[in-house]
Amino acid sequence: MIYGIGTDICDVRRIRASLERHGDRFAGKILSEAEFKTWKERSARWPERGVRYLATRFSAKEAFSKAIGMGMVMPMTWRLCEIGKLASGKPTVVLHGVLKEWFEARGLSAHVSVTDETDYAASFCVVEKIAP
């Protein structure tokens, strides 16, 4: 059964401007430790790829927060929600701490899709209630 659906579109130029203004501190507020490490590696090789990585993570977390129906209110925080990827490359939602506990207590499962183009990153998230 569908619990919630969320979508988000993010202007990559806005993310780039925030990075220029606040540097690593901005990325550190949005990304989990694992995401931050990946962001640093991608940014070192190709700065634009790093900006797009950050924009897709920002967008996916916004879409997830909408799908669970709470926005950025505890237990939902930027760093407790991680967008990882499976060996196949498929993006996946990885939760931590109190957000993970909240999510699992409700028997929920999440599916996320991310994409980016020159100026925009977009995400779509479906959260479903797993049958008991």
Rank of each mutant, 00 (worst) to 15 (best):
S18H: 09
L19C: 08
E128L: 04
L86N: 12
I15Y: 02
A105Y: 06
R79L: 05
I15P: 00
A60M: 12
P132R: 15
L31Q: 02
Y120W: 12
G6I: 01
K66R: 11
M74L: 10
A67V: 08
L80A: 12
L80S: 15
A87D: 15
R42F: 05
R25L: 05
I15L: 13
I30L: 10
W39R: 01
F103G: 01
L31C: 06
V73W: 10
L31W: 00
T38I: 11
E33I: 08
W102A: 03
M74D: 09
I130P: 06
R42H: 07
Y53G: 02
Y120S: 14
E62D: 06
L54M: 11
A34D: 04
P47A: 12
E101V: 13
T77G: 12
F36Q: 02
F103W: 05
E82M: 07
R49A: 09
F103Q: 01
M72Y: 15
W46T: 13
L19I: 10
H22N: 07
S88L: 13
G23V: 09
S32W: 00
G6Q: 01
D119W: 09
E35R: 02
F36C: 05
F26S: 03
R16N: 10
H96N: 04
Y53R: 03
A87K: 14
A60Y: 01
D11E: 14
K85V: 11
A44K: 15
E33F: 06
D24A: 11
V51K: 01
S88R: 13
S109L: 11
F36E: 03
M72F: 15
G50Y: 00
H111C: 07
A87G: 05
Y3T: 05
E35M: 04
V112H: 01
V126K: 04
I5H: 10
K66V: 05
A34T: 15
L86P: 03
V12I: 15
K40H: 11
R16W: 04
S88Q: 11
K129T: 15
A63I: 03
I2P: 04
L31H: 02
V98M: 09
S59Q: 06
G69Q: 11
R106W: 05
A121W: 00
I15M: 09
H96V: 12
I2K: 11
R57Y: 05
D11W: 12
K100S: 10
G89S: 13
R25W: 08
R42M: 12
F58S: 00
A63T: 03
I83Q: 00
M70I: 09
R14I: 07
G50K: 01
D11H: 10
